[in-house]
Simulated assay, not measured.
Amino acid sequence: MCIILSIVTFGIYGLYWLYCLASDINTLTGEEDSSGFKVLILSIITLGLYELYWLYKVGERLSDFQTYQGEMVDSDRALVYLILGIFGLNIVARALIQNDLNKYAYDS
């Protein structure tokens, strides 16, 4: 649904989605690495370069969280998210992050 809304609103909803993802990651991991507002503003100012960095860091944080939960880390999320971002598929990386967040939200 977030992907469709991002496309229909010409990316406006995508900015809100990025803000929410950053906030939800902080809630899940219990760390305040960077607020949703900070991620949103820096991504806009740097024309998306900060989002590439953020995607990589989120992948690391999710892998660390998965290890903390006692689960086996099945892939290097950080690299996957970064490569998707480099090729302009940020929306796919966001969908994968959202999928992981939903999985852990329902497990809790």
Rank of each mutant, 00 (worst) to 15 (best):
Y16T: 05
S35F: 08
L40R: 02
L40A: 07
T27I: 14
R94C: 10
L62R: 01
R61Q: 15
L21E: 07
V58A: 05
D64C: 07
V8C: 08
R77L: 11
N102W: 08
K38F: 15
T29P: 03
V39P: 00
A105S: 15
T67K: 15
Y53Q: 03
E31D: 14
E60A: 01
V39F: 03
T46A: 04
A95W: 10
T9M: 04
L96S: 09
T27S: 14
F65A: 06
S75A: 12
Y106V: 12
K57N: 09
S35G: 11
L15W: 13
W54E: 02
G70Q: 02
F87N: 07
Y50G: 05
I97K: 05
I97N: 02
F65Q: 02
V58F: 03
T29I: 08
S6N: 11
G85Q: 07
L62Q: 00
I83M: 09
M72F: 11
G30R: 06
N90S: 14
L79A: 13
D107L: 15
E51L: 12
Q66M: 07
A78F: 02
I25L: 10
A95N: 10
V58T: 13
T67Q: 14
G11E: 05
V73K: 13
M1A: 14
D64V: 06
Y16R: 05
R77D: 08
I83T: 07
A95D: 13
N26K: 08
N99T: 09
